[in-house]
Design a protein around this nucleic acid. Structure first.
Lengths: 107, 107
DNA sequence: ATTTTATATTGCAATATTACGATAAAGCTT
DNA sequence: AAGCTTTATCGTAATATTGCAATATAAAAT
């Protein structure tokens, strides 16, 4: 097969997994960290900073965008990507809820 | 190519990505949630509860074990997997640190 | 000792991800 | 308009992941 059987899991489980998948690549972690340190983010910087090709960076940015973590606005000739604060906090809350719901009395 | 260029990223970035990768499948989310709800975990239950074949469940459990999230001990004839509390909290801390380090003054 | 039960491993097919060169598109600059 | 810069898309190759049938292993029960 190869494809995940997403239909046998709950929406919440699938959404958390989907979010985790976006964080499951060091380039995307690095991109998010970099954007968060900048006032503005010019994409071309990322190519230099991260050390991957421009198409690859573009693809990674797209993955991050897909789950709503980035807002993009144009500013002069360069595209300015920024963290979507609301979505970011939503995910932070989801991960934290997941990690907090653990029963300790076993073994 | 196809393989991730892990060597161009920091240890912390790679480790967080690695942990996220384990959470990046709804079956593994479901397995962790299920284990956390039980006093003991008999693996064979998981096959029924999750709805994937025994070899597939075994593989997923192995992925979870690889990053140290499970402790396993034998109890009678059944293997008992449990959440490794220390490691769990470590990851919770890592994710939370990542999510908390976001600069808001952009766009 | 043989059977039963539970878990792990192997091998393989289907699909997904990662990466990049080539090229396209879109907006400035002149 | 022509050229420059920046980002997106296409096409393709390499690798990784997901899933299961078949089989192996290991412990418990008979």
């Amino acid at each position: 097969m190869g494809a995940s059987k997403t239909h046998i899991f709950s929406l919440v489980q699938n959404e958390l997994a989907q979010a985790a998948k976006v964080l499951a690549h060091p380039a995307r972690i690095a991109i998010l960290e970099y954007i968060s340190r900048q006032e503005n983010c010019i994409c071309n910087d990322l190519v230099d900073v991260i050390g991957l090709s421009q198409p690859t960076i573009s693809q990674h940015l797209n993955e991050i965008k897909k789950i709503g973590l980035l807002k993009g606005t144009f500013e002069g000739k360069n595209l300015c990507y920024c963290i979507n604060q609301e979505r970011w906090e939503e995910l932070q809350y989801s991960f934290n809820a997941f990690f907090s719901n653990i029963n300790q009395n076993c073994c």
